[in-house]
Nucleic acid binder design. Structure first.
Length: 634
RNA sequence: GCCGCUAUAGCUCAGUAGGUAGAGCGCAUCCAUGGUAAGGAUGAGGUCAUCGGUUCGAAUCCGAUUAGCGGCUCCA
């Protein structure tokens, strides 16, 4: 048989050969690194017996996505085996590889304790040291079910029953442990070189809160101890930039028992929030938006019209005023619709872009709250755009560009997702087709990459979501662009077309920051608290050496403030080293020392972030430098 | 909301075996006026989250509540 390698060369073999034999034939070194192979487009076990000519034979190492998955999936089986050895009555559920590691779900009498996890980790090493060969075998459905029933694994039986009729049912056996699994796997448990159990947590069987809660163990595995250590170090470092920790240290915001999920902004955090809002207004004014503000509390009747009273009630805070029901707005759209209706509109006005920095309240479940990332009251940088159907595509492009422009200012990388019509949805087929196509065309014509989430759209229209990453790699949805046919229908929005007739406008609903609170949370982590000058709560801090320098220092402060610079002065009776240490911990971008020398020469000794040497400059020069940085959003 | 863990001074955390609490930082006062990441001394500050139980006695053991943390679910 002929095997074609990625470099184009072809190797000839005779007789029984496994993929691993070929790998070993290519190089001994490679065989030690190999995790799996890709044969004619399919990722397979190294133990796979080769049949016939192979046009594509790619060896997958840990660095390769398929290799990493295989490696960690095997590690998850080793973990499951360890758990079964210690608690034979434990029922195994599923154990896939995930982004940075893997997990396995178990149904056990008692949740795992930290000591249990240590025991499991130790047992895993024993299994690895046993170097158990991992063998694949297939069974017909009935026998597969019988095997799992014998082993007392009801979850596996359920999984088998749910497999499509024609699917191959495969198992992997390693020593005393056999698991239903599609594979592929490493050839031996001895091939797992380093791993670490990270945490245990409850998780619903099949992800539904209606099902039993199982115990999930999260862990990770790498092909070398060095890489594992590097990963664990990285996670430690990431924790240091957690926005909740930095938010407290830098006095940006606070969360209190008195308002769970309702964040308090402290003076320094408020500066960041206001700067973001100023920037937002500037960008939107230039992009042709007008701004409105609608009430936070509106009548029940309005929410019935919008459908929220029926569909979103459990997330809404309600109140009673003069015996009538009112609700605190969870979204801004209904208010925006009322504003649209304050006067008749002509097609000539379109597109009408109406922005609103709306404070919304949503009752999120207590367990879902997370710092500023997931709160119960937040400010959406909302806007509703009313337009003609033929304007959809261009307008979507405009919004995509605007959001991209905004994210670029902060140096964010992000990914986009397009969500299409869900099963439960309302509206005409043609509207869905038209709008989904418009979203797709806009993305494609701009040459943008995106993933499609089939059926994940809102019930009233398809959407494009923008996702940003936090410091430990979790992604948070921020920007979103949603087509909405529901609202204009429900609120009977109208415009007079060129034909003199009344029509329904098309509406999009979009946010760029998403939630200013969440965006700030991500910014804190993104910059690790070291904000660019324009966002820095304190841009310059003046430190005096002795109180002989106070008068000059105050003069300098007044001058800088007259130029709109946010500054602080530290005339405390402390040593300069101590004052510098504090100013640096506060991440002040321009730390200015004034001693006798500077007082005499009317100069400043300025330490700029990231530079080791101080720079001597005049107050004028410092002010210009800071103003330039602010202007350039540096 | 669900599973698990946690709650001690403004902050970060000790508190071994039930016998009414400690450190560092911060704060206040005093000394030192000191040139680029912590000068020294003294002092104030705690119903040990809340409520209830066990006990002669609870920060410590048990239960409930509240909030936080890690996940699940949900979402900007």
């Amino acid at each position: 048989m002929n095997v074609k390698l990625p470099d184009g060369s072809v190797r000839e073999y005779e007789g029984k050969m496994t993929a691993f034999d070929v790998v070993r034939d290519i190089s001994e070194g490679l065989s030690r690194m190999a995790c799996a192979v890709k044969i004619n487009g399919e990722v397979k076990d190294l133990t796979t017996e080769l049949v016939g000519d192979i046009d594509e034979f790619v060896v997958l190492k840990f660095e390769d996505e398929g290799g990493k998955k295989t490696y960690r999936h095997t590690a998850s089986h080793v973990m499951a085996q360890a758990v079964k050895r210690i608690w034979p009555e434990a029922k195994v559920a599923i154990g896939p590889a995930i982004e940075n590691g893997f997990y396995y779900d178990f149904d056990v009498e008692k949740p795992f304790t930290p000591e249990d996890l240590e025991k499991i980790e130790a047992e895993m090493q024993i299994i690895i040291d046993e170097k158990l060969p991992i063998d694949r075998f297939e069974l017909p459905r009935q026998e597969a079910i019988k095997l799992m029933e014998e082993k007392g694994e009801p979850y596996k039986v359920e999984l088998i029953n749910d497999l499509p009729e024609d699917s191959v049912i495969s198992f992997y056996k390693q020593g005393d442990f056999t698991d239903l699994c599609a594979g592929p796997h490493l050839p031996s448990t001895g091939r797992v070189r380093s791993y670490k159990i990270l945490s245990a947590a409850g998780a619903y069987w099949r992800g539904s809160e209606k099902n039993k809660m199982l115990q999930r163990i999260y862990a990770t595995a790498f092909d070398s101890k060095k890489d594992l250590k590097a990963y664990l170090n990285m996670m430690e470092e990431a924790k240091k930039r957690d926005h909740r920790k930095l938010g407290k240290e830098l006095e940006l915001f606070a969360l209190m028992d008195e308002g769970p999920g309702f964040p308090f902004f402290l003076p320094k955090g408020m500066i960041i929030k206001n700067e973001l809002v100023n920037y937002w207004r500037d960008v939107h004014r230039k992009a042709g938006y007008v701004e409105i503000s609608t009430p936070i509390i509106l009548s029940r009747q309005l929410w019935e019209t919008s459908g929220h009273w029926l569909h979103y009630r459990e997330n809404m805070y309600t109140t009673v005023i003069d015996e009538d029901d009112f609700a605190i707005k969870p979204m801004n759209c209904p208010g925006g619709m009322l504003v649209y209706k304050t006067k008749p509109h002509s097609y000539k006005e379109f597109p009408i872009r109406v922005g609103e920095l709306g404070l919304v309240h949503r009752h999120e479940m207590s367990g879902a709250l997370h710092g500023l990332m997931r709160v119960r009251s937040f400010t959406q940088d909302d806007a509703h755009i009313f337009m003609l159907p033929e304007q959809i595509k261009d307008e979507i492009k405009n919004v995509i560009k605007l959001i991209d422009e905004v994210y670029k200012v902060f140096g964010f990388s992000y990914h986009m997702e397009l969500s299409t019509r869900p099963e439960k949805s309302i509206g005409k087929d043609e509207d869905w087709e038209l709008s989904t196509q418009a979203l797709k065309d806009a993305l494609d014509e701009e040459g943008l990459e995106y993933v499609i989430n089939e059926g994940d759209g809102a019930f009233y229209g398809p959407k494009i979501d923008f996702h940003l990453e936090d410091c430990i790699g979790r992604t948070w949805q921020c920007g979103t662009i949603q087509l909405d046919f529901q609202m204009s229908e429900r609120f009977e929005l109208e415009y007079i077309g060129a034909d003199g007739q009344k029509h329904r406008p098309v509406m999009i609903h979009r946010v760029a920051f998403g939630s200013i609170e969440r965006f700030i949370g991500i910014l804190i982590e993104h910059y690790a608290g070291t904000f660019p000058v324009w966002l820095s709560p304190v841009q310059a801090k003046i430190l005096t050496i002795t109180d002989r320098n106070n008068d000059y220092a105050n003069e300098v402060i007044s001058f800088l403030e007259s130029r709109g610079i946010r500054c602080e002065i530290d005339t405390r009776n402390e040593k300069i080293g101590f004052k510098i240490r504090e100013a640096r911990n506060e991440r002040v971008p321009f730390i200015t020392v004034i001693g006798d020398k500077e007082t005499e020469d009317n100069t400043l000794s300025v330490r700029m972030r990231g530079k080791k040497e101080d720079e001597i400059m005049s107050p004028e020069e410092l002010a210009n430098k800071i103003c330039d940085d602010v202007k350039n959003k540096k």
